[in-house]
Write a protein that binds this DNA or RNA. Structure first.
Lengths: 341, 341
DNA sequence: TGTGTTCTCGTAAACGTTTACGGAAAAACG
DNA sequence: CGTTTTTCCGTAAACGTTTACGAGAACACA
């Protein structure tokens, strides 16, 4: 059906070797011959069969992204990933690389799904997200010697892979600074109960800022919940029922913030009036919620592009003249001040 | 590095043909030999190289999903797709098929990105979403003779491909019925201005129900806007400024509903009190918004699974004993009554 | 003219599979 | 024991590429 390099060769009455060389821009082919080959390729609508190419070159020219819903996230997923993927894919496409998405079991972090990709060599590298503090997937890929990069840091695997993360620590600090400047002393921190690394980073910043302001860290104001709206609802209710209520809450997750505001509304507590609310990762929800939620916003699409670059820089086949480099970056978040604090 | 079928053969001192047959469960191989092969495969950690297999069999065992952000949707994407993808992938995985995601240019519906997949044969079939009434991608795939299925109907391509859609028409009807039953006569319909097919279906249902109730369709109450929060904000403002305000609004898109409610809030109009609001496609936003928005909810994850089945049933290589079938289904939405109407 | 260099191309092997074909050995059958 | 059938396995080709190697022709240079 589709034309192969053999068809071109037959059509032009030359050998397949020459056709291949002409197509790949090698030097040892006559200029006029190359022209004829390119024309014929256009005329016969030729494009190279990726399977054949992969087999010969030992590279698939595709990168796998592991998209793993959180547990309890069945109904709707994080809007976070679409723009990130857009950027990732755009950058990969510039290097003629495809993006393949492998979905993990919601909640589970075992590397089973990854194993398939690695062992059958369906991709040349992997991009991980939602990194945990101790991450089985990172351990597995490291041991297997399979190239990868992560969106988010982890304690697993050392500094052997590229990673791009958001500065949750700094955001935690800034949030506290902002609230303290507005007179708050009792500031709650609500984060997911999973081992997700950003929960720790956020808390580090939160604690650090409190101490800097000479405010004692009250364990009763730090709470973990399920990483979705229901979890936010539950944990917020609990925190607000404590004897010594907070006057401000920092949510470390947008979904939890939504659920939390629901709980507040039911208790007759209005964000922006009766309590201050800041969300660490902004989504459209925050903007269109009433009241609009003050939040820290990441640049997702540029982050996707950047992580693609960083991954490629670590791969021998794509690294530039300086050779392979392991790049790790932490990007700042931008505070978007709205009505809730 | 990774072991091949040749390694197994050498290790067992038999031919690669026998190894392959043993691995693939063919009948013409001695039971004991098969055992030895399987053991060796486990011991040497063998798994078949997908490129080699694809080349030989002319099939990649991967399905491409085209994920195409709407224009103006750069910052965050639709939460819609993650659970759908989860189901799609889960079902494909049961047939040992991979899912590949190809992102389109936001807004553009030309088939360029698809062409790559088709021409270099990187996938065995394609799944499309966000179908438009006239869809270049469907035309292209049809002409190319490349197998595909769609989430959403279209007028392009006839009935030659499997499709699964939500019953937007019925949802439009039900929304009107519900509002009329509550005494509303001036009901606005707000939908995206793009050529997206569901916008038409929704409007058909809306008009049909109005006529059934003997209510004249007022063109001033039907409005199109950009398919995001900003678009919803703008078009809702416009509609509410008309001389003869509606007492109810049906939003055909969750993002537009959010923006619309923002506009209402700024005008001091409270959904559930001063105006009734119904949203056609539910998201977590609707649930945690204040007031919680009455909405129609799809079963995204099951839909993903089902569309995978339907696609496979249309492919000769996977069709069951009854042979290939083109299945088209339209699934109902479930009304989730909340506080906004 | 002879020698060395450059340009251009064909040949063939290789990547890892699957599978059609045929043949040897074993089993079944008379 | 001879013939036929069955069981099992090896051989080799094929899928579509890329690329190392070598060879012929053209050219440069002395």
């Amino acid at each position: 059906m589709a034309s192969s390099i053999h068809d071109l060769a037959r059509h032009l009455n030359i050998s397949i070797g020459t056709v291949s060389r002409a197509l790949n821009g090698r030097a040892d082919v006559n200029a006029e011959t190359r022209q004829r080959v390119l024309e014929a390729a256009r005329k016969l609508n030729y494009s190279p069969n990726q399977s054949g190419r992969s087999l010969r070159q030992g590279a698939t020219r595709s990168i796998a992204f592991m998209l793993q819903p959180h547990p309890g996230d069945q109904q709707y997923g994080e809007p976070f990933f679409i723009p990130f993927l857009t950027g990732l894919q755009a950058q990969l496409a510039e290097h003629d690389l495809d993006l393949m998405v492998v979905m993990g079991e919601p909640g589970q972090y075992q590397p089973e799904r990854l194993r398939r990709v690695v062992e059958t060599r369906r991709a040349d590298a992997v991009v991980l997200a939602n990194t945990r503090r101790e991450d089985d997937r990172i351990d597995y890929l490291s041991r297997a010697g399979f190239p990868f990069a992560t969106l988010g840091r982890s304690q697993s695997g050392g500094d052997t892979y590229p990673s791009l993360d958001i500065d949750f620590e700094r955001a935690g600090e800034e949030a506290v600074d902002r609230l303290v400047a507005r007179g708050h002393r009792r500031i709650a921190a609500i984060r997911p109960s999973l081992d997700l690394n950003f929960g720790y980073l956020f808390l580090d910043g939160y604690r650090k800022a409190l101490r800097r302001h000479g405010i004692e860290v009250d364990p009763g104001l730090i709470a973990d919940g399920f990483i979705n709206e229901t979890g936010g609802y539950q944990v917020t209710s609990r925190v607000m029922l404590s004897k010594d209520q907070p006057t401000a809450i920092i949510f470390n997750n947008d979904a939890m913030a939504l659920g939390g505001c629901k709980a507040l509304a039911e208790m007759g507590i209005r964000p922006g009036h009766d309590i201050a609310v800041i969300v660490i990762v902004d989504t459209p929800l925050c903007r269109y919620f009433s009241p609009a939620l003050t939040a820290f916003r990441p640049s997702l699409e540029p982050m996707g592009r950047r992580l693609a670059e960083m991954l490629l820089a670590s791969l021998p086949a794509f690294a530039g003249p300086e050779g392979t480099r392991i790049i790790r970056e932490v990007w700042p978040l931008e505070l978007v001040a709205r009505e809730s604090d």
